[in-house]
Computed example of a mutant assay.
Amino acid sequence: MQEYRLVALPGEGVGPEVVEAALAVLAHLATLHGFSVRVTHGLVGEPAVQQFGTGFPEATARLCEGADGILFGAVSKAGLLELRKQFDLFANLRPVRPVKSLRHRSSIKPEKLDGVDILFVRELVSGIYFGPSGRGVDETAPYGFHTMQYADSEIRRIARVALQQAQQRRKKLAIAHKENALPCLPWTRLVQEEAAAFPDVALVPMLVDNLAMQLVMNPQQFDVILAGNLFGDILSDIGGAIAGSIGLLGSASLNADGFGLYEAIHGTAPDIAGKGIANPMGTLASVELMLRQWDEGTAAAHLAIAQEQLLEAGYRTADLVDSPEDRFVNTKAFTEQLIQQLTNSKANQFKS
């Protein structure tokens, strides 16, 4: 039996709630599909600050070393950027595939959602979030600055990841850039040079503001979208509007060795934290990505199908309820229903 070592970092806000739900589902999947997962917990974010004085303590870093993956909840400030940098998790993958039963929740017209399957590939450990920054005072007033800085090599390596993903999908890569205003960051040229090794992938450079508009006007045109850290952060959140809720979307952040951190793209949601009504599907979508990275593709497909079946049956977490016919369930009840559905669909060979 294959055993995987997983580090769970629940963090704060709704993080502990959605991670607990995801771990319960993962344990059931492991039983059904003949592998095992050994989970150890660590501190990150505000709980780590309270105990260690820092959002990403050395004890947590040591815990993550040698693991097969990290399941991450959410933090408000400290810890996440340091964690990404520590393990060079430069390649962030964020898939967006609207579910048929939730089309009415999308901000996009239903006829524009047919066949929508987008993968955002975001550079994650450089750019404006990691460039020189600070506060100062000149002769006129106080000021602040953050610097968007990229080495050509950093752009080239994330380009290769995006090109590989596009080659395995529909062979179309959109490049988000702002070269009319940021000409010293030549994303288009560098990606084109890397694309020489991928002659069957069509490149579509797009100004980032136009790309954002096109995402809400005609998302069907996109396959893989490559973006830097800041632009990728903003653009991929539009995926929440396309899918119907940001609570549905997961992500994988990988380094060159394939080691990954898996987290929902939503934040701590302090307004609902502790109420037991958080949507765990973003974290479950991240578990699906983790299973695929582990080559447990059958278990990943099983999870995706079982969730769709629950949604088709009308089960809804609080962020998805919008009609009297919806069957509202809290986080615990959704998790229990999903585990039952996994058992049922296993018996029926995943029939949808």
Rank of each mutant, 00 (worst) to 15 (best):
335 T>F: 02
341 Q>T: 05
9 L>P: 07
161 V>A: 03
217 M>N: 12
89 L>D: 00
135 R>M: 14
89 L>W: 08
84 R>P: 06
83 L>P: 06
262 Y>I: 08
123 E>I: 02
272 I>S: 07
169 R>P: 13
170 R>N: 10
155 I>Q: 01
71 L>P: 09
5 R>M: 10
252 A>D: 02
276 G>V: 02
297 G>V: 12
107 S>D: 14
49 V>R: 15
249 L>R: 09
253 S>A: 12
326 D>V: 05
165 Q>A: 10
202 A>K: 14
293 Q>G: 11
344 N>W: 12
239 G>R: 00
47 P>R: 04
51 Q>K: 10
83 L>E: 08
160 R>C: 10
337 Q>F: 12
38 R>E: 15
231 F>D: 00
222 F>I: 01
196 A>C: 14
244 G>P: 02
274 G>W: 13
48 A>D: 07
48 A>S: 14
241 A>F: 04
90 F>D: 00
260 G>V: 00
328 F>K: 08
143 Y>A: 12
153 S>W: 11
269 A>K: 02
155 I>D: 00
30 A>I: 10
295 D>L: 05
226 L>C: 01
109 K>P: 13
42 G>Q: 00
24 A>T: 11
223 D>Q: 06
2 Q>W: 13
36 S>T: 14
235 L>F: 13
320 L>M: 07
248 L>A: 02
256 A>I: 12
67 A>D: 06
